[in-house]
Design a binder for these strands. Structure first.
Lengths: 238, 238
DNA sequence: TCGGCCTCGTGATGTAAATCACACGACGGA
DNA sequence: TCCGTCGTGTGATTTACATCACGAGGCCGA
């Protein structure tokens, strides 16, 4: 099998390493096989658009490898990033189920692989497999819950520094060292961070300076070290 | 039957005037009857809380009469209203399906009646009636869609006047006169409007003055007349 | 009938953050 | 190798709102 963009290809959902943890997991043998039949897989380069906000839903994408940026924009060009999706996530599910347009744009942030399941096939699959439909409903309501967290940060969090601290905290939960500090690779640009917390690039730059000065974080190349969660939590305070 | 708060009581979902249009509608005879069995009904005074943000979900409420304010607050007391629900709406569905806490607080804005369906009964009902489960999934994804509209207005709309114009427009869609203008009763206080568009009471007052001066709207007592949608759309522009 | 509470209007003031502007280093392709 | 682009830091300026402050009218209950 070819490996474009230097990636290994995963060609079978039944043996995929991420299958255990997510939506279409632990299906009955039969359902799993059926799912494997109706999906197709593809590899995408950095910058590829899986789907674009406003398009009629064609189907869902199950992300196998790579990261995807979900964003929504106004006509004047202002953009907010609502989520960075990782492997295992199912993208476009809401649009497919409701048959309303995709509510976000999904763009590959790095080369990666995704499985595609056409809308019709998926809906038929759900009708044939009632227990999966209920799982889908659960997933949809969880999506709704996280959407409300977004609404809360956008509507209630007041200052950029508050939102910035909140974002840093959300990052630390993923990988914390034994001594309480956290270390991670910073893959986002200031511009992208600005689009997440709803401010400008310059303000993000200044926030980094400010937080460095306050000993809240440290930068070694592209490695971000977060010194103390408690101090950040005090800034978030809410 | 008693009629507290001066309301007529609707005691049977099968004959309820709003049943045709909404989620639990056009069910099979059997399913409809079953639903009627597991629901209980109650009348609530103005200000009553059906549920509060953060509580574990007890069940869903189907609003029969009255209006309900859905809101979320920060610890510091800042509040945003995310939706005004009307009769026929199902409240708390996401929380019940996902078993995550209620993501909003639901407060009666006027006396009204609501049916309550306990979580366990509803989930069992959904398991027994697969076709309704799919309808629920559709409803959940529509909810998600509207949540994203909220995210867009909060995150992308820049100025209060833009959001205010947007709100006025959303009102006009409900009842437009033949000459293009719209007339309606204004039941919300400036404070509440401020909580919808995410600004302060004072700013809303000033917006009303400003829009009056610009001939965009007119107030006769509590009757709001919106002069021309096109002018408002130009302000929204996005 | 009166007094208190809620809603509303509007002025004065302060300030945080957007905007504009420019410079510098890193990187990658021609 | 050089040049263009992209990401970044940081100063100066401006401005739209929040905030504070106060007064006026309306409504309701005592």
């Amino acid at each position: 099998m070819r490996a474009p963009y230097g990636l290994n290809i995963l060609d079978n959902c039944l043996t995929c390493p991420v299958r255990e943890e997510h939506l279409f997991c632990n299906l009955s043998i039969h359902a799993g096989q059926r799912l494997n039949e109706i999906k197709s897989t593809a590899v995408y380069p950095k910058g590829a658009m899986l789907f674009i906000e406003g398009q009629q839903p064609r189907g869902v994408f199950v992300l196998c490898t790579g990261k995807v940026k979900l964003s929504t924009s106004s006509r004047e060009g202002k953009t907010i990033i609502t989520k960075i999706s990782e492997s295992g996530d199912v993208l476009g599910l809401n649009a497919v189920v409701s048959n309303l347009p995709y509510e976000v744009t999904a763009e590959m942030m790095e080369p990666g692989q995704a499985n595609f399941i056409p809308r019709d096939s998926l809906l038929q699959f759900l009708k044939d497999n009632g227990e999966v439909a209920l799982r889908v409903a659960e997933q949809l309501s969880r999506n709704y819950y996280t959407a409300y967290e977004e609404i809360r940060t956008l509507g209630l969090a007041t200052s950029p520094s508050e939102k910035f601290a909140k974002l840093l905290l959300s990052w630390t939960t993923k990988s914390t060292q034994t001594d309480g500090s956290t270390q991670m690779k910073l893959t986002l640009t200031h511009e992208e961070i600005a689009e997440i917390i709803g401010t400008t690039r310059e303000t993000v730059s200044r926030l980094f300076s400010e937080f460095k000065k306050k000993q809240l974080l440290q930068l070694k190349g592209s490695t971000l070290i977060i010194r103390s969660r408690p101090a950040l939590e005090k800034i978030v305070q809410s």
